[in-house]
Design a protein around this nucleic acid. Structure first.
Lengths: 191, 191
DNA sequence: ATTTAAAGTGACATTATTGTTACTTTAGAA
DNA sequence: TTCTAAAGTAACAATAATGTCACTTTAAAT
């Protein structure tokens, strides 16, 4: 007994993602979104009271999807295998870090629903760090990681390699291999 | 024969910087700026026709100041000395990269003056890369940098270490020393 | 003291964004 | 076929940001 929707949740979330990457959180407007989906603004407001609800809900879906992939890491037994898996995962979606940061900018005091969504996001974020902490713990146990380097830097360093812009368009494979090499053994020669 | 100004250019640029870091380019408004400087919006418009002119002019001043410091790098003769200098410079102002990226987002088609400012910024940016390229060339000449790692990655890697968030508040000295160690020799042990 | 001109203000018109609502459309159930 | 309810629209009021301008303030020069 219902009319057919003009866009799927997938369409909605894809458009949201694209606009967030182009304009950031503060530049994101419901008009831009409605235009992109070729519906009226009113339609968007049927589903979300404000853009913050939409964005946080989109972010939760994005994080869930990402964590599902990240969870596969524990299937690898050695630290080196997990390291390879992690870097390949990171480079399979280079925009996710930017999106996660945008998600964290959203103020919680907009509405009940936004506050709840932000809590959920925080929990997912913690879960992500749990996964990554086990990875580091394994590296420490196998004595593969230099003892003097603090945990947060290990993680931050690895995760932030995706934000290095490849303006010169170095082929992806060479780019990733070089990054792995630097993380593992540095960029200096050994003499 | 003139009335005293309520704010100096320094005040203006500092407020601009702070607001850009908090709200980003799209979230920056003339009202916010006027409030922070405790003047009316009209006053700001006496000096700049729009926020883009202000932001680009602020960015030019910021870049000039930064390049002045960067130019001291060439006084150091060895690659390793230049490397140390560069990392200390980078970590003396961790927000500059974020600001430079914000500056690059501003559309040039707002007005003549904005377009000209953006050109100037582009030139300054190129000059920065020239300085950094000489640094890399020296490293290659001294055979200190692994041959297989492409130039843009060397630069990107070093510059992006400042964006790694130090949430755990590791003491600055230890943080920087660890970063230098990873860049030079990696985070893996040598066995 | 008067004049001058830069500095600053506050009010106005304009435009953009938000959020709401009465109304229309449409696919399927009765 | 007609009724229903979800889906969508378009118009409205409210708020916020923009850019302009006639006017006021003020410090220094005459």
């Amino acid at each position: 007994m219902a009319r057919e929707r003009k866009f799927s949740t997938e369409d909605l979330f894809l458009a949201t993602r694209q606009l967030l990457l182009i304009h950031g959180y503060e530049g994101f407007t419901v008009s831009l979104l409605a235009d992109r989906l070729e519906v009226s603004r009113g339609t968007i407001y049927k589903y979300f009271e404000n853009k913050e609800e939409l964005i946080t809900e989109y972010m939760i879906s994005e994080m869930n999807e990402y964590l599902l992939k990240l969870d596969h890491m524990k299937k690898y037994e050695s630290f080196e295998a997990q390291f390879d898996f992690l870097l390949n995962l990171i480079f399979s979606d280079t925009e996710i870090t930017k999106l996660i940061n945008i998600g964290r900018q959203i103020p919680a005091n907009i509405s009940e629903r936004v506050a709840k969504n932000k809590e959920k996001l925080e929990a997912l974020h913690l879960h992500m760090y749990d996964c990554l902490q086990s990875f580091i713990d394994l590296g420490r146990k196998e004595k593969k990681i230099k003892a003097q380097i603090p945990d947060p830097l290990i993680l931050g360093f690895i995760l932030h390699t995706i934000t290095i812009p490849n303006h010169a368009n170095i082929p992806k494979k060479q780019w990733i291999e070089s990054i792995k090499e630097i993380i593992k053994n540095g960029m200096f020669t050994n003499n």
